[in-house]
Nucleic acid binder design. Structure first.
Length: 154
DNA sequence: GCCAACGTTGGC
DNA sequence: GCCAACGTTGGC
């Protein structure tokens, strides 16, 4: 099966690419996603070996910070069942889980942040949901062409 | 801190 | 099933 490419957003002050790099095995569950469109990608589309851009959002300089690899495909997100967890969802049922997560492993940090501002200036990337107005999806697919184009910007 | 855009909820 | 109200995301 062909590998897929993705973009995954996180707030660097909460969990940035430097946090992932510092984790044991440089690996961490990507949990807490509570949006159905993003859930469908986590649960149904992501495969081991897929690669994703690690995007920093909600910060002074939003942009792509580096690359991660999906090392474990979708499995139930246990944080949804934990009342102590910030992402607890009382409506979700452990017997029929609503929310899923994947495990990601650090691959590398870019030499520089490829900023959202910069990405918006490239007409070759205008098809990306990321640069379209009002898009709030925290996980989105990236085409191989877009992937290669962005890598060449670094 | 503001606010536009969007997804979700719940009354009807 | 509609849609107003609300909460969240995320750039600026």
């Amino acid at each position: 099966m062909n590998m897929n490419y993705w973009l995954m957003k996180s707030e660097p002050e909460v969990f940035g690419i430097h946090h992932l790099k510092a984790r044991p095995g440089r690996t961490e569950p990507w949990d807490g996603v509570r949006n159905y469109q993003a859930r469908n990608m986590l649960r149904d589309k992501m495969q081991g070996g897929d690669q994703a851009f690690f995007y920093h959002s909600g910060c002074a300089v939003p942009g792509i910070a580096g690359i991660v690899e999906i090392v474990k495909p979708g499995y139930p997100d246990a944080t949804a069942f934990d009342p102590q967890d910030h992402h607890y969802d009382p409506k979700s049922d452990a017997q029929n889980p609503t929310w899923y997560r994947v495990d990601v492993r650090y691959v590398r940090t870019f030499k520089r942040i490829i900023t959202l501002t910069e990405l918006k200036t490239h007409k070759q990337l205008h098809g990306m949901a990321l640069v379209q107005r009002g898009n709030r999806l925290s996980i989105m697919p990236v085409t191989p062409r877009q992937w290669e184009y962005i890598l060449a910007l670094e």
